[in-house]
């Protein structure tokens, strides 16, 4: 993987969605590395170098975190809160990617300083398109804080 394009952390418990997302990224021709976390705990472990990701160099943080809200163990909102509460992850862009269009979810996400809120379409074509655009935008167009390009 080309470290220039950095890492995308996909936090998603639905295996179908994970696969479809990966297919979408692949079809979009993204060169970024995609790390998948199956629940909130795993996401936090990865981000803070704990648990199954103990020893990971946490100075290197993903270019973007695609965060589902409905997660086992630790919810997406909590993951967002913990990220924003920690200096190491405070500036990492988070895109909430979920099926919900509930107002409550939207409000809470923005209140927790999500950078974007995107609804997953049912239609595969639309889904591929959304995923592609997201990947392109966050890994190539968007300038994150410098840490993503260290090393």
């Amino acid at each position: 993987m080309n470290p220039r394009y950095g890492t995308i952390l996909l936090v998603e418990d639905n295996a179908d969605d994970v696969d479809l997302s990966l297919i979408a990224f692949e079809r979009a021709g993204l060169s970024a590395q995609v790390v998948v976390a199956r629940d909130g705990v795993e996401a936090l472990d990865y981000l803070f170098g704990t648990g199954s990701h103990a020893g990971r160099d946490v100075r290197e943080q993903p270019r973007v975190v695609l965060l589902d809200l409905n997660l086992p163990k630790v919810s997406g909102q909590e993951v967002l809160q913990r990220m924003r509460a920690d200096a190491r992850t405070r500036e990492v862009p988070v895109v909430v990617l979920t099926s919900s269009l509930e107002e409550r979810d939207l409000r809470e996400s923005y209140r927790n300083f999500a950078n974007s809120y995107v609804r997953k379409p049912v239609s595969f074509e639309e889904f591929i398109e959304v995923t592609r655009q997201l990947g392109v935008y966050w890994t190539t167009l968007n300038r994150a804080m410098a840490q993503g390009e260290v090393v």
């Binding site: 639905n14 179908d16 809200l69 099926s99 919900s100 997953k120 049912v122 239609s123 074509e125 889904f127």
Partner: peptide
């Protein structure tokens, strides 16, 4: 319920549609 409907009920549809397309 409606929350979970909005979250969970649509996900399988996306799977059905996506994989059928594949």
């Amino acid at each position: 319920f409606s929350y979970s409907v909005s979250h969970d009920l649509r996900a399988p549809l996306r799977g059905i549609d996506g994989f059928l397309r594949l």
